[in-house]
């Protein structure tokens, strides 16, 4: 695609972008805005992330942190081999993570492929957030838009999204077109996010929460991560998410920190709160607690809530449960005392 020819093309007038960039919203003005963002001090970023990872968390704080981590988990199964049965057992675990200790909080959401949404909704039943009016409960998140590669036509991606929302998904995890982003076709990526956001609209006029997966492992540089974060927020994303979990490296602390910094800057600029979801590669409680520290130190403790911060993980929950059992019983627990993923 000839970029120069397309650069005068108008792009979708998303409210946030109009507010920040102006009404003259074109591929060119978007590019000028994104490329005008200051670069990332990569060495400083990694040093800061490493520093935040050294905090020593003592017993009471650790107990609080473990429960907090559980309440922020998007319990995920995204395998080609997923079955309705697997999704049902995942939902059961989301409702009651540790059957030996009913004081264990529920996770924030279960995250499944679009075709598994009906099974997840049914399995959650009364515990499903959509079935309750008190704001509690477990959400159902669906990955959409030809996850994980995002290589499909726009109409297929939108149909994928509409389908999942109609089936009862409360949250949509979309992937951006990394090919287009890396080739500099920001307008195309932008338009696609706007279109998917529109596809998240339910019949009653409300919107499913939109998480935008940047797949930072394919973006190569922190500068790209920062730019893609701005792009996703400008286009109307409610959450920015690091990775699909299918590409290595997935979530890392420095990448998440750089995304949190964008969210912080956006909050300063507009007063709006955008969520962050690191996903993939976070397997131990120790790692998860490092993320909590990073969030609290970067955007503030108020971000440690399910509607502003999530962990995309599957094996993390078991490790947190083992640590919780250790705190409760005083001796180390083992994998035979938690369910198999």
């Amino acid at each position: 695609m000839d970029i120069t020819a397309a650069s005068g093309t108008a792009i979708a007038p998303a409210a946030r972008a109009v507010e920040v960039i102006g009404t003259d919203l074109t591929e060119r003005s978007l590019r000028r805005y994104l490329e005008g963002i200051a670069g990332v001090d990569a060495v400083g970023l990694e040093a800061r992330a490493a520093g935040l990872g050294t905090r020593s968390i003592k017993k009471e704080s650790k107990a609080w942190a473990l429960d907090k981590v559980i309440s922020l988990i998007d319990l995920t199964t995204l395998e080609g081999a997923d079955t309705p049965g697997k999704v049902r057992s995942l939902a059961a675990k989301a409702k009651v993570p540790d059957a030996n200790d009913l004081s264990t909080p529920q996770v924030a959401a279960v995250c499944v492929y679009g075709d598994m949404v009906p099974y997840a909704v049914t399995a959650l039943g009364a515990a499903h957030a959509g079935a309750r009016s008190d704001g509690g409960g477990v959400n159902v998140a669906a990955v959409a838009t030809a996850f994980p590669s995002g290589r499909a036509s726009r109409s297929v991606k939108l149909a994928d999204t509409v389908d999942a929302v109609a089936a009862g998904a409360d949250e949509i995890d979309m992937v951006i077109d990394r090919g287009a982003f890396l080739s500099g076709r920001y307008g195309q990526v932008f338009d696609e996010i706007v279109a998917v956001k529109e596809a998240c609209k339910r019949v009653d006029g409300s919107y499913a929460h939109l998480k935008v997966i940047l797949e930072t492992g394919e973006l190569s540089t922190y500068d790209n991560v920062r730019r893609a974060s701005w792009l996703a927020i400008l286009a109307g994303g409610d959450f920015i998410k690091t990775s699909t979990g299918k590409v290595s490296p997935a979530a890392t602390l420095p990448v998440t920190l750089s995304m949190l910094e964008v969210v912080r800057d956006w909050h300063r600029l507009t007063g709006e709160q955008v969520g962050v979801k690191p996903a993939g590669g976070i397997r131990t409680s120790k790692d998860a607690i490092k993320y909590l520290v990073t969030v609290a130190e970067t955007v503030g403790e108020e971000w440690l809530q399910p509607h502003l911060f999530r962990f995309g993980a599957s094996s993390l929950l078991n490790d947190v449960l083992l640590q919780r059992q250790k705190l409760a019983t005083g001796h180390y627990s083992g994998s035979s005392y938690v369910t198999i993923d």
């Binding site: 001796h331 180390y332 627990s333 083992g334 035979s336 005392y337």
Partner: peptide, 9 residues
């Protein structure tokens, strides 16, 4: 004592 009490031993 930690090894004797460890549930995975």
């Amino acid at each position: 004592p930690w090894l004797a009490g460890h549930a995975d031993v």
